[in-house]
Write a protein that binds this DNA or RNA. Structure first.
Lengths: 248, 248
DNA sequence: ACAAAAGTGTTGTTTTTACACCCATGA
DNA sequence: TCATGGGTGTAAAAACAACACTTTTGT
């Protein structure tokens, strides 16, 4: 538990370092072996779970801020965070505004910019910061109650992710460098929450041209060894810009 | 031209009324008779063109703020504004920060939330506010130089609009209550910047189920009278949520 | 040799595309 | 009556869905 004095020191500092009224919250979806999770923090000072979030420094681009915040709070580095929505209801931080009454940083209204990311949770080691007792992956169907409007932020991120699945490539930051087709399919199935046909999935995803088939196979597992693939970064990024389906 | 005193009065007021560091900019696309335009303001105090923008009041939801700002600055009412991106580079308002140096509202950094809308420019009467000499529709291929990063904001809005065209219904705020198929097609062609096949367009757009065919035709024009359609609001809004193509 | 996972192929159906033809209207 | 815009239809191509069969590997 942090002492009142420690907190007050942070607040005094926060007023100098951070912009007022603006926060960033990150929804980090983790995926591994057919399981999907989301990264959450448990506060030291409250019995409450949060998405990792923070504030923007005075001379810092918001994209940089998002990366820094996620790193500060969870130890995660070098992942692609995508802006997805701004949450600007004046009452969204009401609980905090009342809880931290008085003339300090937390008593003000915050408009929060939501970022989301997909990562392989197996290669990430979540590390709690000073304010948090726990930093951990939580299963999507075993979520704790969220503090503030973080449930809405999480839900919006998930909806965005599902929508983007149909017109943008996904998985680059989430899959390891080399992966098999069944592994990628599991990702899609997990996000969508339904089974897909193995053969049709393969045909379709290959048709996008964002994958390179490698000569090696993944040995060691039982049964027939699947081929390895990697993302073709050039085509992948082109597809991020152009979208996957021409549409009209 | 506003006097220095008038401006300083506004700034003094602004500090009390508006949140620091946050602004909203609106990209209002207008469409009529096959022409696409964007709504812009010319400043009284600078030789510069802007997108209509403004600031968020202390206790105001950002969606409400966007509506109010657009109304304050251009007289436009009751249109659907859609959040599309946040522009948070610390240097984006550099020109203003230097121009309005000293301890006033404009000297600070602003992070801007971008909203866009589509309207029928024929039924809108753009009215400049106190700060603007001109408020008018500008042709997409005859744009003045933008102030600040407003060209980037405009460009991002247009890219977003084109992308959304393929997975979201558009046109409700833009078309009149009743319209013909060729009129709607012109909208799509204008946004996409290319011709579409008349018959295939009709089949496809009808398949979405967002249109109601009316018994009347549009008389008066030369040649065969086209049928009138209107949006089926219920299906339209469902499609806004669900997207138009299932995808996977 | 067998079960389970993965590679590859086929077939019928639906959707898209690229057209052709007919109708209505004003000049 | 003719040029033009608009309504409707259709055949070929492409894309998709559903499914079967073969190959590989550990047990």
């Amino acid at each position: 538990m942090l002492t009142k004095q420690e907190l007050e020191e942070f607040w005094a500092e926060a007023n100098k370092v951070y912009l007022d009224h603006i926060s960033i919250d990150c929804v980090v979806f983790g995926f591994h072996g057919g399981q999907m999770k989301v990264l959450m923090l448990k506060s030291k000072n409250e019995e409450a779970w949060y998405l990792p979030g923070g504030f923007v420094q005075h001379n810092e681009p918001i994209e940089t801020a998002a990366d820094r915040i996620l790193n500060d709070r969870t130890g995660i580095e070098e992942i692609f965070l995508q802006q997805f929505h701004v949450f600007g209801d004046p009452d969204r931080t009401k609980i905090h505004n009342e809880m931290y009454q008085g003339n300090n940083f937390f008593a003000q209204r915050f408009i929060s910019i939501g970022y989301y990311a997909l990562v392989d949770f197996f290669i990430v080691n979540p590390t709690p910061d000073t304010f948090s007792e726990v930093c951990t992956w939580r299963d999507l169907d075993d979520l704790p109650p969220f503090q503030l409007d973080h449930e809405r932020i999480f839900r919006t991120a998930l909806d965005t992710l599902r929508l983007q699945l149909s017109y943008q490539p996904i998985g680059y930051n989430l899959m390891p460098k080399e992966f098999t087709m069944p592994e990628l399919q599991k990702l899609y199935e997990t996000i969508l929450g339904k089974k897909l046909d193995r053969r049709n999935f393969q045909r379709r995803i290959l048709a996008f041209g964002i994958l390179d088939k490698l000569p090696q196979t993944r040995k060691g597992g039982a049964h027939k060894a699947p081929y390895l693939y990697s993302f073709n970064l050039e085509n992948y990024q082109a597809a991020l810009k152009e979208g996957l389906k021409s549409g009209w």
